[in-house]
Write a protein that binds this DNA or RNA. Structure first.
Lengths: 155, 155
DNA sequence: GCCTATCCGATTGTGCACAATTCGGTAGTA
DNA sequence: TACTACCGAATTGTGCACAATCGGATAGGC
């Protein structure tokens, strides 16, 4: 923000929007707050949050086709293509056409990308600490969010 | 999406990310689902979700300086400036320097912008129906989200 | 072997989020 | 009055989300 108005929930509550907007609005605000925390926590790694998600999937699964990453992270090809190119330029991964199916592009972490896992080791703990939720609270919130998302998707 | 992979929560659950990521991930997915619904519901109005938020504040408050809109909606000037210009070009509002303080720009809905309220009349109800939550459930979820956002902001 | 439907990725264009900077305007102070 | 500190919008640049489209590749039916 260009000024100091990022102060947590100050002016908004005293002058609320119409009631129906609140839920989606709070959802966005919370996502934004998460974004701020991830930005700070990931600063050392040089990754953005979506890029961190990609690295986590590569650390967990090893090489993956773009299509699979898209499914796992629900990221569009229009998002993934330039994102993966930036990460390739940063030396974190390689992109190569599959020999078996030349439509498919296989993404593989480089040694540098794999090594970044050590730098990112504390990220989960720091995020968890910042959220300040118990495992039960987090799980309950997840349940609510998933039910809501399912309902929205189904509508 | 370019293909049919937007199917609600299919492949993700069978092959989960690390546990710590889930909460933020579900948050993003739910925000995305809300985005889809708002896009559909707002299609008739020609507004995007952030633009709808601006119109709602103008319908509620009448004319407002940009700074106030920024505070109410937590939108950055780098976001608001081009957004308001597009809305001005669409004939929904006017932007004029305040006579009292020429640093300030006052945003006013046009007649067309005010009339759009009728077109958007059913938006709250449709969103509520799509979410499928009782008032209690929605309120509880809001509480959780606000507590979480506050904790993240404070960290 | 050929044709067609389908799949996959990349690309293009628009809109939003955030950081950093710029610039004019205002107000407080010497 | 002149100087300075601060304020408010706008701009620039980067990155992500989504829609629409294209072109290459595969597989199935004939």
């Amino acid at each position: 923000m260009a000024d100091g108005s990022r102060t947590p929930h100050a002016e908004v509550e005293e002058d609320p929007l119409l009631l129906d907007l609140h839920l989606c609005f709070d959802l966005h605000n919370t996502a934004r707050a998460f974004g701020d925390v991830y930005r700070r926590v990931l600063r050392e790694t040089g990754l953005t949050y979506p890029q961190y998600l990609v690295m986590v999937t590569l650390w967990e699964h090893g090489e993956l086709p773009v299509k699979r990453i898209s499914q796992l992270l629900r990221l569009d090809s229009g998002t993934l293509s330039p994102l993966l190119k930036r990460m390739e330029a940063a030396g974190l991964l390689t992109r190569n056409r599959s020999l078996a199916d030349e439509r498919s592009v296989i993404v593989r972490p480089t040694a540098e990308g794999t090594a970044l896992r050590d730098t990112a080791r504390d990220v989960p703990r720091e995020i968890h600490a910042a959220a300040g939720l118990s495992a039960q609270e987090a799980s309950a919130l997840q349940q609510s969010l998933r039910r809501l998302a399912a309902s929205l998707d189904a509508s």
